[in-house]
Design a binder for these strands. Structure first.
Lengths: 184, 184
DNA sequence: CATGGCATGTAATGAGTTACATGATTAC
DNA sequence: GTAATCATGTAACTCATTACATGCCATG
């Protein structure tokens, strides 16, 4: 109750999607939320434990796998907590951390060619990500059954819009730098 | 030397721009790098101390302000370290963390109207940021003297491109949701 | 029979924020 | 004279990553 730990609610929310183990939550996150939220096992398992302790989820321990596979289910209390968290506005603008832009910012300390190379590499990475998004989009669109579908697609679309814009930026800046290089 | 601490190099780099105190570095960061790199005093002062201990900067202590204002200058060793850091590719794609998108992802647990409200608020915040970027752009353009100018403008432009794309996304999604609402 | 995927977990470490504490100078 | 800005710094805390450790099950 103390701090608003968004990651806790992310896990709680994912438990409503049919993914009931820590492992499955990680898999789903890596696929779908990956572009705006990441998580490691080092967080997942302690948080699941804590959620169970607070009665937001129940644990069903099977003897299947090694240490006993644990299947989690959200409780009514958990659902209420999730809805409460959702109802809070909170919506700050995304926090971005880009070592690419950080290095670009100090471009005067290196050669123009070095900067151009960096942008080209960045563009390549963006294009790869764009393709990944597109293939995720297709797999989401095939899953008509889920009520989650429209929301999952919208979040993905956000990533697609931004990635397209960033690719455009790369093209424009490369042009600009080529000109700048000629002048010098 | 152990870990590649980008924030350390960000500070080192900013010392080459004519901003020589911890306070001034924070000011400049808040203005210019803010959209892709943030920093707090709790990091700046310890890092400056460490940079001095490693001989990457020199400290000139004046008795001006309270505890003695400290003016930092990058050394040759510091410049070499900065260039070395710059030469490393490293360029991973930006890490984004968006509690807005996280909540949107779980939209099925709330009403469509609530989702629409969230997007409208997000759009408002984006528009505000867009205006901020535009005014920073103008102040950078007036500063023709600096060799940093072109690079600073490019990083800013990245933010402008992305923000424009995100605003477009808001408009498109609001339209989509209004339709979705009618259907239901 | 060995590789890869499924599955859970902890300890150490790192990164970063927040709150607090202090005090000088400048502008109104 | 008082409020804002300039200026430095620390301690406690939160959040997250990384490396490690374990072991089952299915496929080739």
């Amino acid at each position: 109750m103390t701090a608003r730990k968004d990651t806790t609610y992310a896990i709680l929310g994912l438990l409503t999607t049919g993914h009931q183990t820590g492992y499955a939550i990680k898999q789903l996150m890596d696929q779908s939320l990956n572009h705006f939220w990441k998580i490691s096992y080092g967080q997942i398992y302690p948080i699941l434990k804590q959620l169970a302790a607070n009665g937001l989820v129940t644990v069903e321990e099977t003897t299947e796998a090694g240490r006993g596979k644990k299947i989690y289910h959200i409780t009514e209390k958990g659902k209420a907590a999730l809805r409460h968290w959702l109802s809070e506005p909170a919506c700050d603008l995304p926090t971005v951390k880009s070592d690419f832009l950080l290095k670009l910012f100090f471009g005067k300390h290196e050669s123009i060619s070095a900067t151009i190379t960096k942008i080209r590499q960045h563009e390549k990475a963006l294009q790869k990500r764009y393709q990944t998004y597109r293939s995720i989009e297709i797999s989401i669109q095939n899953d008509h059954a889920s009520e989650d579908q429209i929301y999952w697609q919208m979040t993905l679309e956000y990533g697609i819009y931004e990635t397209k814009a960033a690719i455009k930026w790369c093209k424009d800046m490369l042009e600009k730098l080529e000109e700048f290089k000629k002048e010098a």
